[in-house]
Simulated assay, not measured.
Amino acid sequence: MADSFKTGNPIWVYYTDIDTGANLRVPQLLRGFVGTPFNIVELKFPNYRFIKADGQLNGSFDMQPHSVHLYYRRNSWGEVQNVAMYLKLSTPTQLFDDVDGMPVDTPLPGGIFVKTFQRIATQKGEFWYEVNADRWLKYDSNTMKDFKELPSDDSLAPKPGTQLAILPLNHLKAVVDYVQGKKLDVYDQPYGQSIGKVIDGERLDIIGKLNDNNGVVWYQAKDLGFINGSYVNLIQ
């Protein structure tokens, strides 16, 4: 059979939020005969702007595996940074389900430290910090102070790993549910020092659980350390 009548390997096309990993539409599967040209176009999505593409946008179908990722960012988001720092809240602080989102949960009490994982600078000049999965707070210099590390002063620094009891668990099976292809920090204690990383999809052997004063669940993985429970799925 001539190559022109052979079906080439299909091409997967992904349209993805570069910051959250969410698909902006169902991944598309392109098919064609070997040698047939293909052309992948940059689509428009409401409230998003195109950032970059990884993969070949134009070419011909062949027998090699291909995938193409087109990445977008929300129009209202400017600078996006992964951070590992702490905010001390001096007054009760409202959490939101997203940047400029809806209020959720009971406000966090004043006088506590929260660890942040991501910082968003919006086009309006605001700073938003992710303090848990789908939980954000808006930075206010009048009511918050940032720290690169927890202060060593006992009067300031919380010690959730020592003040709260760890509930022993009998080797529960779990899996890391983070962002595809990305790694997540593991800590020596909740809000402690990073001592390693686990990758999305990695299997875990859970031997302990801790609920801290901020309402955050932490799981203790055997031979690894503590992982934020928002990124752990227990296997029934």
Results as ranks from 00 to 15, higher is better:
I120C: 09
I120D: 05
I120F: 13
I120Q: 04
A121T: 06
A121S: 06
A121G: 00
T122Q: 06
T122N: 01
T122W: 08
T122H: 01
T122Y: 02
Q123M: 14
Q123Y: 00
Q123D: 11
Q123H: 02
G125S: 08
E126Q: 12
E126Y: 10
F127K: 04
F127P: 02
F127V: 01
F127H: 12
F127T: 04
W128Q: 05
W128M: 01
W128L: 00
Y129S: 02
Y129N: 02
Y129W: 00
E130M: 15
V131C: 06
V131I: 15
V131T: 07
V131Y: 00
N132E: 14
N132R: 15
N132Q: 14
A133N: 12
A133E: 09
A133D: 11
D134A: 10
D134F: 06
D134R: 10
D134I: 03
D134M: 07
D134G: 02
D134T: 06
R135V: 04
R135G: 12
W136V: 10
W136Q: 05
W136S: 09
W136E: 04
W136R: 06
L137W: 05
L137Q: 03
L137M: 14
K138T: 00
K138E: 03
Y139R: 04
Y139T: 05
Y139G: 03
D140V: 01
D140R: 14
D140Y: 02
D140I: 03
S141Y: 06
N142I: 07
N142T: 13
T143S: 14
T143N: 12
T143L: 03
K145R: 15
K145Y: 09
K145T: 07
D146K: 13
D146N: 04
F147G: 06
F147I: 09
F147P: 11
K148L: 10
K148C: 00
E149M: 13
E149N: 13
E149K: 13
L150Y: 09
L150H: 10
P151L: 04
P151C: 11
P151M: 12
P151Q: 08
P151E: 08
P151S: 07
S152Y: 02
S152H: 06
S152D: 09
S152P: 03
S152A: 14
S152T: 14
S152V: 14
D154Y: 05
S155L: 10
S155I: 10
L156D: 05
A157H: 08
A157V: 11
A157W: 01
P158Y: 04
P158A: 01
P158R: 02
K159P: 00
K159A: 13
P160E: 02
G161W: 05
G161Q: 03
G161K: 01
G161H: 02
G161F: 08
G161D: 06
G161S: 03
T162M: 11
T162N: 05
T162K: 10
T162V: 15
Q163R: 11
Q163G: 01
L164N: 09
